[in-house]
Design a binder for these strands. Structure first.
Lengths: 124, 124
DNA sequence: CTTGTTGTCAACCATTTGGTTGAACACAAG
DNA sequence: CTTGTGTTCAACCAAATGGTTGACAACAAG
């Protein structure tokens, strides 16, 4: 379903347990067992969660004997942040310009306002 | 599965089509039909996508005759950004401090380094 | 009132997801 | 070599997801 990395990242963080694990890893690296500790789910389930986070590039695993310490890859967060900022800002500036546009139009072509406005926004 | 808003937001944006629709809405409001236009899926499917975005609080719908113009709610993005920044920063500062910690330890108690470090991080 | 447009609801289907248990693999310790 | 620990793999299951089609509600226009 989610083939691109951005989708994998958002999808990975859509799960509260995985967000929780990210929060834990932000404080310090932890093995799969350590990550599983606070939850009442099986270690296998946690291992799966880690795999999802790793596939998204949010977490990397190293080898330490049998253990697989998990490390949070902070840089990947920037991918998300960039995407979010991009559209948040655009929506915001559009919203701010809406006042001016509406002042000019004064409620004419109510339905069309949206599409008209889209072209206005695209001109920025 | 995703009962809290943060989960709903991430889950909503995990779908490329929905992210696409957000990008479209960032440029300007659009009706469900207008949103459906560029895709080869049914209008019903798009209607469902809009519902998901609306449930996440990312989009609001108003009434205009039969039409349901969709508006992007930019403020909700801040919820995500805050969550992301929180852990990205924490991971980053931890990473930077790692150098100092490792310099002190010089590779002793290799396995324990992670857990030790977690307590270090928690002290901040 | 009838027709066409716009959108949602309902039922259904295939696939994915998050969980389980049991087996197996890798490695440290005895 | 045998045992115990940490992790992953495989098979399975219930629930959610994204899509479909068909029906219907709401409204504009004829």
């Amino acid at each position: 379903m989610a083939d691109d990395q951005l989708s994998r990242i958002f999808s990975a963080l859509a799960d509260p347990t995985r967000r929780d694990m990210v929060a834990r890893l932000a404080v310090g690296d932890a093995t799969v067992g350590e990550l599983a500790d606070p939850y009442d789910v099986s270690v296998q389930a946690v291992s799966k969660h880690v795999k999802v986070l790793a596939d998204a590039g949010l977490v990397s695993q190293t080898k330490d004997a049998q253990r697989r310490p998990c490390h949070l890859e902070a840089e990947v967060f920037d991918l998300m942040t960039k995407w979010i900022e991009r559209y948040r800002e655009r929506a915001q500036e559009r919203y701010e310009r809406l006042d001016a546009v509406l002042a000019e139009m004064r409620g004419e072509t109510a339905t069309q306002t949206d599409t008209d406005h889209r072209e206005q926004g695209a001109a920025s």
